[in-house]
Amino acid sequence: MLVALFVVAGIVSPIFYRPQNIFNVLQQASALGVVSVGQTLVILSGGIDLSIASIMATSCVFAAALMAGKNSMVIPITLFCLAIGALAGFLNGIITTRRNAPPFIVTLGTALIFQGIRFVYTKGAPFGSIPSWLRFLGRGGIGFVPASVIIFLFLALVMEAILQRSAYGRKIYAVGDNKVAALYSGINVPNIILSVYALSGIFAAFGGLVLAGYLGFGDNWAGKGYELDAIAAVVVGGTSLAGGEGGMGGTVVGVLLITILSNIVLLAGLPYQFQQIVKGLVVAAAVIFYSFVKVSGERR
């Protein structure tokens, strides 16, 4: 599918293949990619996380305000932002498991809470600035490879290894496939669910930092729409929304696919809003495609 899109992209506009354009696409894919890694974990476990965008913006705003352009603050404040992300994820997880509440609503609530927190903190007008180290993370590159995409792919690779090769990863699949059976197999289901939301929160906070580096300043709405784009990327990548099926490889493909689509739409001179239609069609096509694959797989 990705290869086909590369070919189509070239036909639509040869500009697509320019190294600088590819660089741009990869750079733009990175923040989405990082948060999609977290979203994949949550969806594999049978949940969904709609608080991602809010956590990203909160992390972005805090990074600008607290780092205030000083490189010496990058590491402590990065840790602080990740901790905030973990806290948000923990909140998602604890309410989802303890109260057995639908994650859809719980994570939406968390999104609102963190939106409120950053508005109270910034009084509506974000301040501070992003130091050069973090800027390098968001827009720098090693040769023709953006630094951010290296980090995204590294995180995806590590998480894929954990999913496939570690006991923890397998437990995520088990919980996503059948919570009751996982419980009956002695898996601590609430802890697994809690941990995937916490991880998703950390990844979202990190995605917010990548975006802050890309942008160069704190924005109260940085990452707007990323929660749905991340879900779209995960689904297009073949992870089942029902949980228990899929992986990081598909998500990487999904993220690139969605970013390339936006790029092609612009290169083709279509209104940017057109990409929403295309995105929707791609998600629908993916869902139909995978349902066929599944049916034919079952018949074997």
Binding site: R170, Y173, A174, V180
Partner: peptide, 20 residues
Amino acid sequence: SEGLCLGLSVKDNCVMAVLD
């Protein structure tokens, strides 16, 4: 509904209780 993760493989189900 209680004994197996139907969507997972024979192998995954067999080792599910001894993953650690």
